[in-house]
């Protein structure tokens, strides 16, 4: 068997050209899929360990935030807008899609910083580490989706048959999140302020994006929502479940294209610059 020669030299990938390295990236990801799976399993197995109620936390956290909004609404402080279905279903479902972004982004941006000792001692695919961290978001998503099913049963409503399309419709938001996660994990690995800033920013973004309330029709927020890709990416799978159609298909397609572009660009940047992180993480 011929043994491959691996060469390390400064700006290795840069020399090869900006876009021709894409092949290299894909090969690395494919080659390391078992590692990614193992890392994912590790995150998944440890996330709720040393905890008595364990996985129940995945239910409690969204229920509390949704509960808060229900309470605010009943006191007349907060108005959802016209929804047309029981609010808890609307909100929990929306939250399930939203947290793919929020949980995913926080997990992935912390992935390199958390694995500091490993990165400085073992040479393994850092892309696997970032990709695997998205698993946390997927697992909480599945659990929360279970909660949604329970809510449908409770209210005696059936979701639309197009619910089967959900796995496809969440792909764009996953790409978007993972793409940003790649860049932020690197930056957070070097400068920890990035992670702290992100937690604040994500809460802010959640209120800015119509997830727990209907899309506003007037005012500054209405204008912002038109240009908010996160809104389209999270709303499309929700609309499919609730209304059997994607209400703003144009926005969704445009946002999906944007998401894939962000993903590819960020992945290339990550590949070009990941060699910098081990010595500074």
């Amino acid at each position: 068997m011929p043994e491959a020669v691996k060469t390390y030299q400064p700006d290795n990938s840069l020399r090869k050209g900006y876009f021709s390295i894409f092949r290299e990236i894909v090969d690395e990801i494919v080659e390391n899929r078992w590692l990614t799976w193992q890392l994912f399993k590790r995150d998944f197995l440890t996330i709720y360990k040393q905890s008595f109620i364990g996985v129940l936390w995945a239910f409690i956290i969204p229920l509390v935030s949704v509960g808060t909004f229900v309470l605010l609404n009943q006191s007349g402080i907060f108005v959802f807008g016209e929804i047309g279905i029981p609010y808890p279903i609307y909100a929990v479902l929306g939250m399930a899609f939203w947290q793919l972004f929020s949980t995913g982004l926080i997990a992935s941006s912390n992935s390199l910083a958390k694995a500091r000792t490993m990165i400085t001692k073992i040479n393994f695919s850092k892309k696997s580490l970032v990709i695997a961290s998205m698993g946390q978001a997927l697992v909480s998503f599945l659990i929360q989706f279970g909660l949604v099913v329970a809510l449908f049963a409770f209210y005696g409503i059936a979701p639309s048959p197009l619910v089967a399309l959900v796995p496809i419709l969440i792909i764009p938001i996953l790409f978007f999140t993972l793409g940003l996660g790649f860049i932020l994990s690197l930056l957070n690995g070097i400068v920890r302020d990035v992670g702290n800033m992100l937690s604040v920013l994500i809460t802010f973004l959640m209120f800015l994006t119509p997830i727990l309330y209907a899309k506003p029709t007037e005012g500054l927020l209405a204008v912002l929502t038109v240009y908010n890709p996160l809104y389209y990416l999270a709303a499309a799978p929700r609309d499919i479940v609730l209304m059997n159609r994607v209400s703003e298909i144009g926005g969704f397609v445009a946002s999906s294209i944007l998401a894939v572009a962000v993903f590819i660009l960020c992945l290339i940047i990550f590949h070009l610059t990941e060699t910098r992180v081990a010595e500074r993480v």
């Binding site: 491959a4 030299q9 073992i122």
Partner: peptide
């Protein structure tokens, strides 16, 4: 391959295994 050189060039043939930590 944990750190990359700032100057120069380094080539290794085959799979590298480390008993480092």
């Amino acid at each position: 391959g944990i750190f990359w050189p700032d100057k120069g060039k380094l080539s290794v043939r085959g799979r590298v295994g480390a008993l480092i930590a």
